[in-house]
Write a protein that binds this DNA or RNA. Sequence first.
DNA 1: AGTGATTTTGACTCTGGCGTCAACATCACA
DNA 2: TGTGATGTTGACGCCAGAGTCAAAATCACT
Lengths: 208, 208
Amino acid sequence: MRRSDGDARRAQLLEAALHALSERGIVDLRIRDIADAAGVATGTVHYHFKDLDDLLVAVHEEAVDRFVGARQEMVAALPDARDKALALIDTGVPEDASDILVNALYDLNTLVRRRAVHRTMSRALTDQQVTLYAAVIEVGIAQGHFSPAAASADVAANAVALEDAFGIYITSFGGRFTAARARTLMRVHLAEALRCPGLASDLKEDIA
Amino acid sequence: MRRSDGDARRAQLLEAALHALSERGIVDLRIRDIADAAGVATGTVHYHFKDLDDLLVAVHEEAVDRFVGARQEMVAALPDARDKALALIDTGVPEDASDILVNALYDLNTLVRRRAVHRTMSRALTDQQVTLYAAVIEVGIAQGHFSPAAASADVAANAVALEDAFGIYITSFGGRFTAARARTLMRVHLAEALRCPGLASDLKEDIA
DNA sequence: AGTGATTTTGACTCTGGCGTCAACATCACA
DNA sequence: TGTGATGTTGACGCCAGAGTCAAAATCACT
């Protein structure tokens, strides 16, 4: 059995698919594009995935895993809830329109309204993000830094919604809506919702 | 000249296209679907529009016009800024996943990242919505009902972002995220951001 | 080196949808 | 009622791209 070979190739194809998807867009995406991006023949793609639908489900899974994985590690590493919150803001918003993961994720969102599998994954992503925010808020309350008027779950839901929308704006309006503005808006909002003025200040590392 | 005939048919085709788009999704949308929805032959669609791209641009225009048009009238008709704000919340969030206009709009968003024309229209839509909210906030300040800590433009931008994200959730997660929850979250947020507790109460008509 | 299992290749077939077009229908106006 | 302009039809040609497959390549193990 040469299982590892197959797995490695599969991972390579998913990576290539993320790039191809981000580049061509889901409407124009061809098997050919993925093969090209991976530097293999089209037959190879068909060998590893039943059809395009099958592949897109795998790509969606991969994208969701990558997106939440990075953030969870980041947040866990920081002790102060204010730092955690700022880290969430930084990692939740794409730097610019070239963010492959975010582009792919939003293109895949088109399928969410048609295919139950994709709906499940998209919902999972949103839920995980809300849970992550809610947990940080709870920690912040315990640490005495946050004292929100609304329920933690509500504040968290709003924060994630803002992230999602800003992600779309940044990847869609290329340059006319910047990551910097998105982060400012989010900090201003969270500072108010959590009653923690420090979040609005520009000091990222080590809040005074 | 039978200009009116042509225009009427064109409008009918745009209407049909909105339905077809919402039903099939942009990935699977065929000229055939639009023709069927309009009850005409495929040749008729080709006669009125150069190609699918051309048609989708027209559909996008139509969708944007409809979306903002309804809201502007609604807001202008109400004198009290708090009522205006509540009306904005109500009309900015789709009732459920069956909202054709919103479904079409989000599907068209996929093209925003590829085609400049669509980018322009999508940006225009967002800008108009932000302007609308900002104007209402200004009126509210003048009336003495709102006293936001942040700039009007920022509060407006956040409100529109929330609307957009919630619209996606409602149309995507069908039933698991309701319009009622979206409106509650928006009211809670605006009540705090505008320092106007009345917005959070359930009284829609005639705030006490 | 031989053997069989696994993986890769790219030429091929086939489906399905776009856009064309010639014929037909409908209308305005004389 | 005739005439030309405008609008409609659906069969057809064409081709892009999905998926198939037989042959070749690569690997693990002996």
